[in-house]
Computed example of a mutant assay.
Amino acid sequence: MKNENNVFEFSPSPWVPFRDKKEIERALKIRREDIEKHDNPAFKIRVVPDSDAEFIWVTDMFKRIRHSAETSEKLVMILPNPAPSYRHLARLINACNIDCKNVYAFAMDEYADENGNIAPENWEFGFTHAMMKYFYYEIEEKLRPPKNQIVGFTNKNINHYSQMIEDAGGADVCYSGPGWTGHLAFIEPDAPEFQAPLEEWKQMGARVCSLSPFTLAQNSLHGSFGKSGNLAAVPPKAATIGPRDVINSKHRFDMHTISVHGTSTAWQRSVSRLVLHGPVTPLVPESILQTLRTDVFVSETIAQNIETDWNKGY
C-alpha cells in the first residue's frame, strides 16, 4: 500500500478471515487488568492461574454430573475433544460412586475426509474415539450411562445431529474454547458451508464443513498428530455442531488456556481478545458468546498484555 509518509502499511492476507485492522488493533491493546470487563453482565470473564484452569473445567462437569445423580435429572452436555483431562473426571466419578445413568453427552465435532465421510469411532485420532477412551471407558462399568447416550457424529446422523440434541431436551451446557481462527467447535469463519449473514448464520445447525488452513496448522501441533507440524496428518474437513446448537444451549462454559506447551508463546492470546471484546460476527464465530449467558475462564498466560519481545524468535 502506497503511503506519502513512506510508512510501510499493508492489508491482512486474504487468507485471514477477519481483516478489520482497526478492530484488531483495538482488541489487541486490551490490557490484562481490563480483560474481565464486559457490557453484558451474563457474559462473565474471569482470569485464573494457569494451574487452576483444568481443575475448574473438570470441577464444573463433576458438579453437574453429581447433581444429575442426586436429583435424577437428565444432564445433556456438548463436549469438546480430544481431552485426556476427562480421565480426572472419571476418577472423581468412580471415587464418589456417582451413577451416570442420566448423563447424555454429544461430541462437539469430528474429522471428515475430503468427500465428507466422517471418521468412525475406532479411528484412534478421532474425537469420538477420544471421548470414549478418556471419559466413557474410564468410568466403572456399573456407573456408566448406556452407551447410546454418548453420541458422536456419523455419516448416518449428521443431517439430524442438531435435532438429536434437541430431542434429548437440549444441551444443558456447551463446553468450548476458541481455535486460531476464532472457531467454535469446527464452525469455521472461512468455510463455504457457513457463509451467511449473522441472523441466518445463527440458525445453522450441524453439518460437515471445510477446515481452515489455520486450523490444520493449529491441530498439526497437537500431541495426537505428533506435535510436529505435519499438515498432511490433519483431515481436510470436519463434522461440527452449528451456531444454533450453541445458542440453544441453556448455558455455556468457555476456556481460553492454550499456549505452546506451557510457554508464554500463545496464538490464542490474540484471538481470545477478538472473541471476548471484538465485534460479534460470523468471521469470529466464538464472538457470538458475548451475547449469551456464558462463563469464560482465561488463563494468566492468555491474559498477558500483547507486547513486542525482540529477544524471542520462534
Rank of each mutant, 00 (worst) to 15 (best):
E124P: 06
F125Y: 12
G126W: 04
G126P: 05
G126L: 12
F127G: 06
T128L: 12
H129G: 09
H129T: 09
A130N: 13
A130V: 07
A130W: 14
A130H: 08
M131Y: 09
M131G: 10
M131W: 12
M132C: 08
Y134T: 02
Y134Q: 08
Y134F: 12
F135D: 11
F135V: 10
Y136V: 06
Y136T: 02
Y136D: 01
Y136R: 07
Y137T: 06
Y137F: 09
Y137E: 05
I139K: 05
E140R: 01
E141M: 02
K142R: 00
K142W: 09
K142D: 04
L143A: 03
L143K: 00
R144M: 03
R144L: 04
R144Q: 01
P145V: 08
P145Y: 09
P146L: 01
P146S: 03
P146I: 00
P146A: 02
K147S: 10
K147P: 05
Q149A: 06
Q149M: 02
I150V: 09
V151Q: 10
G152W: 11
G152L: 08
G152S: 15
F153L: 07
F153H: 11
F153Y: 03
T154G: 12
T154M: 14
N155I: 03
N155F: 02
K156Y: 10
K156R: 11
N157G: 11
N157A: 13
N157T: 15
I158V: 12
N159E: 13
H160T: 14
H160P: 13
Y161W: 15
Y161K: 11
Y161I: 14
S162D: 11
S162R: 09
Q163N: 15
Q163K: 15
Q163V: 11
Q163C: 14
M164Y: 15
M164L: 15
M164H: 14
I165R: 13
I165L: 14
I165H: 08
I165V: 15
E166T: 15
E166Y: 15
E166A: 09
E166C: 14
D167M: 12
G169V: 07
G169R: 06
G170Q: 03
A171S: 10
A171Y: 06
D172N: 02
V173K: 04
V173P: 06
C174I: 00
Y175G: 02
S176C: 02
S176A: 09
G177C: 00
G179A: 05
W180P: 05
W180F: 11
T181I: 07
T181K: 05
H183Y: 08
H183R: 02
L184K: 04
A185S: 07
F186Y: 11
F186K: 09
I187T: 06
E188W: 07
P189K: 04
A191P: 11
A191N: 02
A191K: 01
P192D: 02
P192V: 00
E193V: 04
E193T: 00
E193C: 01
F194G: 02
F194Q: 03
F194A: 06
F194Y: 08
Q195D: 03
Q195Y: 01
Q195W: 00
Q195T: 04
L198M: 09
E199R: 14
E199Y: 13
E200N: 12
W201Y: 15
